[in-house]
Amino acid sequence: MEWLQQLFNGISLGSIYALIALGYTMVYGIIKLINFVHGEVFMIGSFTGFYAIAFWGLGFFPSLVLSMTVCAVFGVVIERVAYKRLRNSTRIAALITAIGVSLFIQYVVIYIRGAQPEAYPNVLPNRTLDIFGIQISSQSLLILLVSVVLMIILQFIVHRTKIGKAMRAVSFDPDAAKLMGINVNNTISATFAIGSALAGAAGVIFGVYYTKIDPLMGIIPGLKAFIAAVLGGIGIIPGAVVGGFVLGIVETVVSAFGFSLWRDAAAFIILILILIFRPSGIFGKNSKEKV
């Protein structure tokens, strides 16, 4: 039953990666930008949740909603201030800007509150359940449930609502979408808002699950979520979810075999292998530059 236990831990971790990866993949799908700031949005979400719980005494769900709202606004502001001007510049300029904004946010947060970590308060009742012989805390079960519900809501938004339709149209062909009367700017902002809200949720969930947060916490999960997005095929929403879960499970397995120090390396090795052998990811289609 040991492996079943590990599988469950992997899925819990994977659900966090998946939530962050969704934002990466949505933004990439729509403006072809690797939004490095996404890891920082995740961090801001985590801190918002922390302050909401610790200082205002809010419960888990109100904090989650608050943090998602703050992150949605934050994501849109970043898009409007920094990225909007870069739509017609080179990919490299956009990537460097993203890295720059990401570092800026990290160090402004450190400047304001210092680099010391914070212990996340315990907001969820924690009982250990015994299901099919494996030990599952009610907390991680609830977290997994929340992640899955959010993913289902996202799927609904993308496929059943008007804004979702507009998002798909813009990511397919922005010029044609514009000619069809779609407000491309608003659609891009909406994408950032939704993606960032998911990262915010992931931030709170991460805090509750791992109990320790700090201003540089976004870097590694951010990169890993990006790897998950590439693994599933960047720009493809179900791909990000699958990529997140696969990565979470692989990491847990690597740790379980006693190589926990190599855990981070495993993710990067997966990234490089996938980039070399199947750069379009598990679900992606190959595309070649037109000559």
Partner: peptide, 17 residues
């Protein structure tokens, strides 16, 4: 070091924009 990083990143973003 924090001030340094803030200046660095701000300069980088401004240059790119």
């Amino acid at each position: 070091p924090e001030t340094r990083m803030i200046i660095y990143s701000l300069v980088l973003v401004m240059v790119m924009l």
